[in-house]
Amino acid sequence: MPEIAARPRVKPRLKPERPRLYKVILVNDDYTPRAFVVGVLKAEFRMSEDEAHRVMITAHRKGACVVAVYTRDVAETKAARATDAGRAKGYPLQFTTEPEE
């Protein structure tokens, strides 16, 4: 019986897919003090005073503002922690997440 040379198996190279990114969105409310919102943005999202103030004012004027973009688990964790910081002080501060287009 003739021997058949074994061909090396070639695995197709799969290009790893980049994880889908999610936006963290600050939703405006008329009750949470501006200084508190700025403080949460600085603490949770490591923003400077100026950056945090700009995001807060944009949310105030437009109703909502994208704060940052992360992978899903990071975005959801940061949004929940920031929302919880407001709830702990009795404010209706709300951060949401949604997939980036």
Results as ranks from 00 to 15, higher is better:
P2M: 07
I4W: 12
I4K: 12
A5G: 06
A5L: 15
A5D: 09
R7I: 05
R7K: 10
R7T: 06
R9K: 12
V10C: 06
K11C: 01
K11E: 08
K11N: 07
P12W: 05
P12D: 13
R13Q: 13
K15P: 00
P16C: 00
R18G: 11
R18M: 11
I25M: 09
I25D: 04
L26H: 03
D30M: 07
Y31N: 04
Y31K: 00
Y31P: 02
T32A: 01
T32F: 02
R34M: 13
A35F: 10
F36V: 03
F36Q: 00
V38N: 06
K42M: 12
A43H: 11
F45W: 00
M47A: 02
M47N: 04
S48D: 13
E49N: 14
R54F: 06
V55E: 03
V55Y: 01
V55D: 02
I57W: 03
T58W: 01
H60N: 05
R61M: 12
K62N: 15
G63C: 10
G63S: 08
A64P: 07
C65E: 10
C65L: 06
V66F: 03
V67L: 02
V67Y: 03
A68W: 05
V69W: 02
V69T: 09
Y70N: 04
Y70S: 01
R72H: 12
R72A: 10
D73G: 07
V74W: 06
A75T: 08
E76D: 09
E76M: 10
K78Q: 06
K89A: 09
G90C: 03
P92Q: 05
P92T: 04
L93F: 02
Q94Y: 13
E101G: 09
E101D: 06
